[in-house]
Design a protein around this nucleic acid. Structure first.
Lengths: 411, 411
DNA sequence: GGCTTTTTGTTTAGGAGCGGCACAAAGTCA
DNA sequence: TGACTTTGTGCCGCTCCTAAACAAAAAGCC
């Protein structure tokens, strides 16, 4: 042999089936079927811009991998030979999707297609250290997989705080007190590995952890209000503070260290409320649930979740003035983001979704007025559509390697 | 024939040489050589992760296209058979790069490799309507091409204002009074077409127009301070106002309508100077040349270019306090952008470059202190390195189709 | 200086992936 | 019933790449 060190050890002769180039059509084809855009092989032909022969072969291969089914009965749409609908195999493999919420945990199985199985909700364990929480999630997930006797291909977890790349730590403290720097990616991988869910026993499942806003954006982009948007900005207000996420050309923009779209400290009211960051009038403190209550001069019922109360208040006509105040601040923040990111569409979730419902014309108009983009085009500000977007997004994240290379399902 | 309407009319049988997939290695290989990363065929082998056979074939094909040369003499680097350096053909084809500046025009020819030919500077014509300006540029470019007897493959123009996509208009008025909505892309294409520079006579040259900050970012990313950065943020202050640009994974992020990175209206001083946009303390008015003069309490000499004077003032030790004030505002703006975009690196140009030189530790420290990213990692804030970055970036833009598919050079 | 070792470049054979084409299948329309 | 339209498939060939062997050009060792 001449010198094997520089000759790449390919898996046999022929065209390279390398990480990203071999079988270039299989991934795009599965992605199209997954997002419900190509009901038939004929639609695949046009969407992928290939010949019918190739589209047929690709569909056949996806079916052979157990991912796609070809409907028995044809669907008649006018003239010509009728097509057979391409569907996702109902008994195909699944992934584990999990989410850490403010006050609970949720876990579900998900096949392709963006539909979740029934979600399991768990209270936070008494010890809110990382290990017991992640162990609880992994155990619940393993129970689901075993009970439903499905093949599990991966797991992903949505966390309510940023996840730093590439080391996989949570840089800021979670609200229930995990220290900054907690290696959440590794801990979750360990928790899943301990459940021994690998397809052939000892092979550890691929796992991933990401911020919940990012995953929600992914879910909305693939299956919700962000479909067909090239650049999608999602802004959400949860229990406390504001989260953002950006999808660029179908892929999450998480920045160089996973810390992009930390939009909470945009200044939206120079004379506003003080923010822990030291400034005044940050988006975080001006458009979160507390800000709405403060603007309305109402008291919070400490016995009920703050976010739920705030969403009710946003729908309360008697709080109109307060809603408008907060909407104005939000619009300024969104306009600032629009000037920087110029997305196709802005999707609002959480409390912001209710603020949009309460001010369906005022909010987009203000965004348009305060952004260069808005002075050129209509600015589509829309409400989120996906239920359990965090879980659905986690499922997307876990499926991602297989959407890139469906043949990995066979490995 | 069965039905040619759905069967794509490919250019002959065989593996598809379609827009983006045919000859997948040729483009990446040329790009590596173009950015000076692969001096030899052996380096191509490792960079492209292909076999030596393939790298050799690719290099040979690029040489056959007249783009790449293989050095006569080997370069000895230790043991083994020495390599021959891969260079860019000195007599290869060129593109036309042009820029509209505040008070003049510039035009240059550029081959691959990021080096400009000698630039020609032209005063603005008496009539500052779009047509005469663009005609002046096209005529000067055509004269260069003819004088140097080079084959010209395309032309690109850098403009000091945003270019709206997909219609190719300038949404805001240029400072010398072009009306908003001017179809600059079409007008430039017409001006170039009128010069009849096509390789075989009547074929019009491909042309492009883009914002100068965007093009500068492209230039810095490929050939300057942004090399090896995955996500690069460039911020620049020109004669008036602030421009920004973002390169994501090697490609410009211009947003859905080309209006991204309009960073000038970030609030950086809630009680600051009024901005034409209606707010106070926008980055535009707080960190532009006038702001520095205002902070220093100095008078501007109306007989000299404002930007030049401001850059001198930034270097003047006696203006220390004023510089620090403006630096503080700039740092706040950069931190805001870092929180949203989380780039790998921030490159400063124009006046901001001098502000960084005047406050080489204060500025990065403040950016770090006010951004989540800065609290996790070092924030590299660096000065621009490319001379005539607008022209170099325009050349990159014009070369882009050929870097994607080098075989287009032959067409 | 001859030998081996190391690294680079080239030649040859062959395989994977996809297009073109012809044909078959399954419906609608007149 | 037959013409037409649209969808799906089998076969062949082309292109782009890999693997493997060979050739070339240096350094290192004796």
């Amino acid at each position: 042999m001449s010198n094997p060190s520089t000759t790449r050890p390919g898996p046999g002769p022929g065209r390279r089936p390398a990480p990203d180039r071999g079988r270039t059509l299989l991934g795009p084809a599965l992605r199209l079927i997954h997002t419900g855009r190509t009901p038939t092989r004929s639609a695949l032909t046009t969407a992928l811009e290939v010949t019918r022969a190739t589209a047929g072969a690709v569909a056949g291969e996806l079916a052979a991998l157990g991912l796609v089914t070809v409907d028995e009965h044809p669907i008649g749409t006018g003239r010509g030979r009728p097509s057979h609908r391409l569907g996702l195999a109902p008994d195909g493999p699944v992934v584990l999707a999990a989410q850490v919420h403010f006050d609970m945990l949720s876990v579900a199985l998900a096949g392709l297609g963006g539909e979740l199985g029934e979600a399991v909700y768990l209270p936070l364990p008494a010890a809110t250290d990382p290990e017991p929480i992640l162990a609880t999630i992994a155990a619940a997930g393993a129970a689901l997989v075993r009970a439903q006797r499905r093949r599990c291909l991966g797991a992903a977890l949505a966390l309510p705080n940023p996840v730093r790349e590439p080391d996989g730590t949570a840089p800021a403290a979670l609200h229930f007190g995990w220290p900054g720097g907690t290696p959440v990616v590794q801990l979750f991988a360990d928790a899943i590995a301990a459940q021994d869910l690998g397809p052939r026993g000892r092979v550890p499942l691929p796992t991933a952890v990401a911020n919940d806003a990012n995953l929600a954006a992914l879910a909305e982009h693939r299956h919700g209000a962000g479909r067909d948007a090239r650049h999608l900005l999602l802004v959400t207000s949860g229990h406390r503070g504001v989260g953002g996420a950006l999808v660029v050309d179908g892929r999450l923009h998480t920045g160089s260290a996973g810390l992009a779209l930390e939009v909470g400290h945009l200044t939206v009211d120079p004379l506003g409320r003080p923010c822990p960051c030291g400034n005044r009038g940050c988006l975080n403190v001006e458009t979160d649930p507390e800000a709405l209550f403060s603007a309305a001069g109402r008291a919070v019922d400490p016995s009920r979740p703050l976010l739920d109360q705030a969403r009710e208040l946003a729908r309360d006509p008697s709080a109109r003035a307060a809603v408008d105040t907060v909407v104005d601040r939000l619009a300024l923040g969104l306009a600032g983001l629009a000037n920087i990111l110029n997305p196709d569409r802005i999707v609002l979730s959480g409390l912001h979704q209710d603020l949009l419902a309460a001010a369906p014309t005022r909010l987009p108009e203000l965004v348009a007025r305060h952004s260069l983009w808005g002075r050129c085009d209509q600015v589509p500000v829309v409400a989120a559509e996906v239920c359990h977007a965090g879980l659905v997004g986690a499922a997307e994240f876990a499926w991602e390697p297989y959407l890139r290379d469906p043949q990995a399902v066979a490995g």
